[in-house]
Measured scan of single mutants.
Amino acid sequence: AQFIESYVCRMCSRGDEDDKLLLCDGCDDNYHIFCLLPPLPEIPKGVWRCPKCVM
């Protein structure tokens, strides 16, 4: 059997509050909206890229 790795935030390495986890459309990394600098108030609509992919 294969275990699917749960999504974890690249900043805090936690997978809780998954309703606040953002998936980068560039590299598929995950980030909590409140772990980003600056934090986001809510999940953005449409395409989102993490700080690494925006640079």
Rank of each mutant, 00 (worst) to 15 (best):
C35G: 00
G15P: 13
M55V: 12
Q2W: 11
D19P: 08
C9H: 01
I43R: 12
L36H: 12
C53H: 00
G46K: 04
R10I: 11
L36T: 08
E17A: 14
Q2V: 08
E5W: 04
V47F: 13
E17Y: 05
K52T: 12
P38E: 07
L23E: 10
A1E: 08
D19K: 13
P51E: 09
C50G: 00
F3W: 02
D25H: 07
I33K: 04
Y7A: 15
Y7V: 09
D18A: 14
D28W: 06
L23F: 04
G15N: 06
D16G: 14
Y31A: 03
C50L: 02
S6T: 14
L21C: 05
C27E: 00
A1R: 02
R49V: 06
Q2P: 08
S6V: 04
C53R: 00
D25N: 05
C53G: 01
Q2Y: 11
C53I: 00
L21R: 07
V54G: 06
G26H: 14
K20D: 01
G15V: 12
V54L: 07
L23M: 15
P41G: 10
V8L: 06
E5F: 09
R10C: 09
C12N: 02
V54T: 13
V54S: 06
F3P: 08
Y7E: 15
H32Q: 02
C12Q: 02
G15D: 11
K20S: 12
C53Y: 00
C53L: 00
D16F: 15
Y31T: 02
Q2D: 14
S13L: 13
K20T: 14
Y7Q: 11
C53E: 00
E5H: 06
C53N: 00
R49W: 10
P41R: 14
M11V: 09
C12F: 02
D18P: 15
C53T: 00
P41E: 05
F3H: 10
R49H: 09
P38G: 04
F34L: 08
V8T: 11
I33L: 03
V8D: 05
S6P: 10
D19Y: 05
D25C: 06
P41A: 09
D29E: 12
P39D: 06
G46N: 04
P51N: 11
S6Q: 04
D16M: 14
L23W: 06
D29H: 15
C53A: 01
F3I: 07
V47D: 10
M11N: 13
N30Q: 14
D16Q: 08
G26N: 09
K20Y: 11
C53Q: 00
P51S: 14
K52M: 03
K45T: 12
F34I: 05
I43H: 08
G46L: 07
D16C: 09
A1T: 02
P41I: 09
D19G: 13
K52Q: 10
M11E: 15
K52F: 08
D28L: 05
E5I: 05
G15E: 13
V47N: 11
L36P: 02
S13E: 15
L23R: 15
V54Q: 03
W48N: 01
L37G: 09
L36I: 09
L21G: 02
D18N: 10
V47Q: 15
Y31K: 02
D28V: 03
V54R: 09
A1G: 07
I43S: 10
F34W: 10
C27L: 01
K45V: 07
D29P: 05
E5L: 04
R10W: 04
L22V: 08
S6K: 05
D18E: 13
I4E: 08
R49L: 08
C50S: 00
W48H: 01
C9K: 00
E17V: 15
C50T: 00
D28F: 06
N30P: 10
D25P: 04
D19L: 08
C27G: 01
I43V: 08
D28G: 13
E42C: 06
K52C: 05
E5T: 10
C9R: 01
L21I: 11
K20C: 04
W48S: 01
L21Y: 05
K20I: 03
D18K: 15
D19E: 10
E5Q: 12
D19C: 12
C12V: 00
D19M: 06
L22E: 03
I4N: 05
S13Q: 07
F3Q: 07
N30E: 11
V54I: 12
C35Y: 01
L37K: 15
W48K: 02
Y31M: 10
H32C: 02
C12P: 03
R49F: 04
S13R: 12
P51Y: 05
D19T: 15
I33T: 13
P41T: 10
V8K: 15
D29G: 10
E5N: 15
L36Q: 03
L36V: 09
Y7G: 14
I4F: 10
P41V: 11
C35N: 01
F3L: 12
R49I: 07
P38R: 09
V47R: 13
V8F: 05
Q2M: 09
G26V: 07
S13N: 07
H32A: 02
V8S: 12
P41K: 10
D25Q: 07
P41W: 04
I33R: 04
Y31W: 04
D29L: 09
K45H: 11
L40S: 04
L21K: 12
M11P: 02
P41Y: 06
R10Y: 07
G46I: 03
L22F: 03
K20F: 08
